[in-house]
């Protein structure tokens, strides 16, 4: 049942993000799922969820297989460390900053991987604009997605 729910969530996030757009930029809802898995289930399961979602995104993209797998895996791993690890104690503000930072990190890893191993997918200024917009669009979700032991 849990896996079915996750499958529905993943497909819904793909469908929704293909339909939503603000200033020509779609929010990256799949990052939010990976972030949620990371802070709820810890670094290992967060990373594995990220790898799975990233692999699906890579299979559907028209470029090389790997950039999203790597970036989402790293996001899943870091979201557990960043928010529930010994470094920080979760607050709504930190949650927002974490999502903002992790979304930007995800985009940066994908952009760098594509630029290094395939073709640069956009001009740097454009990539920066898209990454910033996506980070800002995703950030408010960091207030709502909270760890189990949050107050």
């Amino acid at each position: 049942m849990k896996y079915l729910l996750w499958a529905i969530l993943i497909i819904s996030s793909f469908v929704l993000q293909a339909r939503l757009s603000i200033l020509g930029v779609s929010p990256d809802l799949s990052i939010l799922l990976v972030y949620y898995a990371g802070i709820k289930y810890g670094e290992k399961k967060g990373m594995l969820t990220g790898v799975l979602i990233g692999a699906l995104e890579d299979s559907m993209s028209l470029s090389i297989f790997g950039p999203n797998l790597l970036s989402k895996g790293i996001i899943g791993f870091f979201s557990a460390l960043f928010v529930t690890g010994s470094l920080f104690r979760w607050t709504p503000f930190l949650g927002m900053i974490a999502v903002l930072f992790l979304t930007f990190l995800d985009n940066s890893i994908v952009f760098l991987s594509l630029s290094l191993f395939d073709k640069a997918p956009a001009a740097i200024s454009n990539a920066l604009f898209i990454s910033l917009m996506q980070s800002i669009l995703n950030a408010p979700a960091g207030i709502l997605i909270r760890p189990k032991d949050a107050d």
Partner: peptide, 25 residues
């Protein structure tokens, strides 16, 4: 596991950059 993820991803991408993309889904 984290280290393995990075290594496997980089190997995958390096392979594809030399031999061409895997078939799309």
């Amino acid at each position: 596991l984290f280290f393995l993820l990075i290594v496997v991803s980089l190997v995958l991408m390096t392979y594809q950059s030399k031999k061409g993309h895997f078939s799309s889904g």
